[in-house]
Structures are given as structure tokens and as C-alpha cells.
């Protein structure tokens, strides 16, 4: 088919394909989830601080009690507990983590450095 046209424009097939590919790329960009991630970290940090505060109130730093409290508060997370820099447990650590640390005096006024590393 031959058309003589003095005015107007033509969009080439290559240009159309490029435009199509461009919009496909745009639609493949995932929605931003940074806000939700921030809330998750905040919640885990709050729970970690709850543990530290309760331990500061109770002054019971026996390994058994600390680990049972940990399992009670974080039943689904891998949490590594360190007492005076010595790890009391281990678990399969994957992905990102948050840490919470506190220095607490026990009943004998010995300083206990407690650190929690919560993986999520």
C-alpha cells in the first residue's frame, strides 16, 4: 500500500516496541515497603526493651529464667542472648537483626551486661 502524505507523523514499529518495554519495566517496580519494615523493627525493639526492663525489675539473672523468658516473648524469632558478652544460646541466624543492650545491677550489686540480638 502506498500512501502519499505531506502532513502527519508516523510511529515506527521499533518506537512502539520500545515504549511498550518501557511501561512494562515501570509496572515491574515493587511498591515501597520501607514504612512497614520500620514498624516491624520498632515493635521488635519494644519487645526486647520489655525483656530488659522486666529483668531489671525482677533482678533474677539465672540462665534458665532468662532463656525461658526469651522463649515466652519471642516464640517465633531467632534471638541470641549474651550475658556479659558470653552467648547463652544459639540459633539459626538469618536476615536482618536488631540489638538491645542494657547494664543492670543484680541483687549483689554486680553489673550484668545483657545483650539481645533479634533476627527477623
Amino acid at each position: 500500500m502506498k500512501i502519499k502524505a505531506s502532513r502527519g507523523f508516523a510511529i515506527s514499529f521499533e518506537a512502539l516496541t520500545s515504549l511498550f518495554a518501557f511501561f512494562l519495566l515501570l509496572s515491574a517496580i515493587p511498591a515501597s515497603n520501607s514504612q512497614a519494615q520500620g514498624l516491624k523493627e520498632l515493635y521488635l525493639l519494644q519487645k526486647s526493651n520489655d525483656l530488659l526492663k522486666v529483668w531489671a525489675l525482677k533482678h533474677d539473672f539465672s540462665t534458665e529464667e532468662l532463656l525461658s523468658d526469651l522463649a515466652f516473648v519471642f516464640p517465633e524469632n531467632c534471638v541470641v542472648l549474651k550475658q556479659n558478652k558470653i552467648p547463652l544460646n544459639s540459633c539459626k541466624a538469618t536476615g536482618a537483626f536488631i540489638t538491645a543492650k542494657a547494664g543492670i545491677f543484680d541483687s549483689f550489686l554486680n553489673l550484668q551486661e545483657i545483650e539481645l540480638v533479634v533476627y527477623y
Binding site: M1, I3, K4, A5, G8, A10, I11, L16, L19, F20, F23, L26, S27
Partner: peptide
């Protein structure tokens, strides 16, 4: 098909190009 002096003829190629443009715009929106 031919272009006359009194009006324009909407060619088949232009029609398909227009259709594809509209589809791309609709998908993007």
C-alpha cells in the same frame, strides 16, 4: 486508498499504530 484534497483518509497502518498507542496508554494508566 488515497489522500484526497477534501479530507484525509485514515490509513490502516496509522489505525493500527493508534490502536497500539491507546492499548499501551491504557496498560500504563
Amino acid at each position: 486508498m488515497r489522500i484526497t484534497s477534501k479530507g484525509s483518509v485514515f490509513s490502516i497502518e496509522l489505525f493500527f499504530a493508534f490502536l497500539v498507542c491507546v492499548l499501551i496508554l491504557a496498560a500504563a494508566l
